[in-house]
C-alpha cells in the first residue's frame, strides 16, 4: 500500500530526521510551531521590560553592564526566534500584530512586577533557570530552524542564570536588610516560576501531539519536577528558603514533593488579569508606534541611495 505524506512525515520524525522549511509537513504541525515559536519570541521581547526597569538603578557599574548585556541578549533571542517562525510562512509584522492585538500570548511570568534589585537576582536564578530547563530539550526539537535557534539561545542563556544566582548570593551574605530583600524576591518569584512549565500534563491538551511530533521532548510536569529538585538543593547555598512548607525530599520517589500550585492565579494572569499585563502590552505598542518614523526613514534613505546609485550607473 502506498504510504501517505503524513505517514512518511511521521517516519522521518521517528527516525530523528529534522524537518526543514521546504519539506512537506502537516498543516497542524506548521501552525503548532508558528504558535509556539512566535509565543517564545514574544516572551523574549516582553521579557526585556521587567529588567529594563532596573538598568538605570543597578547598584554599580559592573551590575549595570551585566544587566545591559543580558537584556541585549534577550532582544537577540527574540530575533533568532522570529526568523525561525518566518521560515514557516508568517511575516514578522503579522507576528507583531498578533502580539499587539493580544491574539498571541507570551510567557505570563513577565506580567509580574520587579519591585526591588533582588528581583534581578530572582529572575536570573528562577525565571531564566526555568526557561533553560524548557529550552535545553528544544535544541533537539524536530523542526530544524527552531532547534538551531535554540542552540544559540541556550549557549547564551547560562550566563543569565549564573549572574542571577550571584546577585542573590551577594545579598544573602550581606546585612539583615539585604537578606530580607533576597528572601522577599524569592518568595514572590518562586510560584510564578514553577507555573512557567505550563498546566499539569492532564490539562495540557497539546502535549500528546507535540510529543508525537517531537516538538516537545518532555512533559510539563517532568520538567517542573526536575526544576524543583535542582532549586531545592541550590537554595541551601543561599541559606534562604523556598516559600513552600510542603517542599520535602521523598526518598521513595527520589524527588522532592512540593505543595499545590494556585492554578486559578495562573489562568487569571494568562487571561490578562495579572498585575502588569496592560503595562507590558502598552509599552510594546508604544515602542512599535514610536519607532514607526525610524522604520520609514530607513526605507526612504535606502531608496534614495539606491536611486543615486542607478543614476551613476546610467
Amino acid at each position: 500500500m502506498e504510504k501517505n505524506l503524513e505517514q512518511l512525515f511521521q517516519e522521518k520524525i521517528n527516525k530523528e530526521i529534522r524537518i526543514e522549511p521546504k519539506d512537506w509537513m502537516p498543516e497542524k504541525y506548521r501552525q503548532t510551531l508558528i504558535r509556539q515559536i512566535s509565543q517564545h519570541a514574544h516572551s523574549e521581547i516582553v521579557g526585556m521590560l521587567p529588567e529594563g526597569n532596573w538598568i538605570t538603578r543597578a547598584p554599580n557599574l559592573r551590575r549595570k553592564a551585566i544587566l545591559l548585556a543580558k537584556v541585549q541578549d534577550e532582544a537577540g533571542h527574540g530575533l533568532y526566534l522570529y526568523s525561525a517562525a518566518e521560515t514557516l510562512g508568517i511575516s514578522r509584522d503579522e507576528m507583531y500584530e498578533q502580539l499587539h492585538s493580544g491574539k498571541a500570548k507570551y510567557s505570563s511570568i513577565f506580567n509580574y512586577p520587579t519591585l526591588s534589585w533582588a528581583d534581578m537576582g530572582a529572575i536570573g536564578w528562577l525565571v531564566d533557570g526555568a526557561a533553560i530547563m524548557n529550552q535545553v530539550p528544544l535544541c533537539r526539537t524536530s523542526y530544524g530552524p527552531y532547534a538551531r535557534a535554540m542552540v544559540r539561545v541556550c549557549k547564551e542563556e547560562s550566563f543569565h542564570q549564573r549572574q542571577g544566582f550571584e546577585i542573590l548570593l551577594t545579598l544573602s551574605r550581606g546585612n539583615e536588610a539585604q537578606r530580607r530583600m533576597a528572601q522577599d524576591a524569592i518568595n514572590r518569584w518562586w510560584w510564578p516560576s514553577i507555573m512557567m512549565f505550563g498546566p499539569k500534563d492532564d490539562e495540557s491538551p497539546n502535549t500528546i501531539q507535540s510529543m508525537k511530533w517531537k516538538i516537545k521532548r518532555f512533559t510539563n510536569d517532568e520538567l517542573r519536577q526536575k526544576f524543583v529538585d535542582i532549586c531545592a538543593e541550590q537554595i541551601k547555598i543561599l541559606n534562604l528558603t523556598i516559600p513552600d512548607p510542603d517542599l520535602k525530599w521523598n526518598e521513595e520517589r527520589g524527588h522532592y514533593d512540593f505543595g499545590a500550585i494556585n492554578w486559578d492565579e495562573f489562568w487569571q494572569v494568562i487571561a490578562g488579569n495579572g498585575p502588569c499585563n496592560k503595562q507590558r502590552l502598552d509599552a510594546r505598542k508604544k515602542a512599535w508606534d514610536d519607532g514607526k518614523w525610524v522604520r520609514e526613514a530607513a526605507c526612504a534613505y535606502a531608496a534614495k541611495r539606491a536611486a543615486r546609485k542607478e543614476v551613476k550607473v546610467a
Binding site: 521546504k22 506548521r30 510562512g89 511575516s91 520609514e296 530607513a298 526605507c299 526612504a300 539606491a306
Partner: peptide
C-alpha cells in the same frame, strides 16, 4: 498568512530593497 515557499527558506513574497517606495506606508516591512 500561510504562503507557499519558493526561495531559500522563506517565501518569495519578501520585498527587496529596490522595491521600497518612499511613500512611507506603515505596512512596508524591511
Amino acid at each position: 498568512y500561510i504562503i507557499k515557499q519558493y526561495y531559500g527558506d522563506y517565501g518569495e513574497g519578501k520585498n527587496g530593497a529596490a522595491d521600497i517606495s518612499t511613500s512611507g506606508s506603515s505596512k512596508q516591512e524591511w
